[in-house]
Amino acid sequence: MQVGPAIGAGIAGVAVVSVALAPTSAFAVDYLSVDQASKLIFPDAERFERREIVLDEAQMRELAGRGVRARSQRWGVLEAQKAGATLGFVVIDEVVGKFELITYAVGIGPDGAIRQIEILSYRESHGYEIRLPAWRRQFVGKTAAAPLKLGEDIANISGATLSCDHVTEGVRRIVAVVDLARRSGALS
């Protein structure tokens, strides 16, 4: 096992003491594109067709009755198809934590069961940044995130309270929305 100094931290002893004083920076990783994730979840799919789910007021109330905050009436869905048959659906979503923004994909089978969940990207930033809408806007589109990339290093975060509660809640919402759409015939 080797534990070495962080880059630019000078001699090792100083690095330890200065942890609390070192300037903080942002952290960002892109794992998969929407395309890559869709193909990973449904490797047999020949094509992915964009569909849109539009929930009406009654459906929004039904979701709320099930304890699911639908958040939006419009949901984009990628339908995985092979030889005219539906293999399942992929929904892309993002959730914001205290300091993090996570984009993820949920694959749902034609039976409504979760096939796979993949994280597409992770952004960790300062509290004051995430409260600003501009910080979030810069992640719309793929190349806009480039300024936050940490060079070419492989970097990993260590922390204790990194929670995926928001993702879990988001997945639950997506499963409920897709289930409702399937039952109402909107996705068939």
Binding site: V3, A6, A22, T24, S25, F99, E124, S125, G127, I157
Partner: peptide, 9 residues
């Protein structure tokens, strides 16, 4: 406060 600090390798 959010953000990350370089620590070690």
């Amino acid at each position: 406060g959010g953000g990350v600090r370089a620590f070690a390798s």
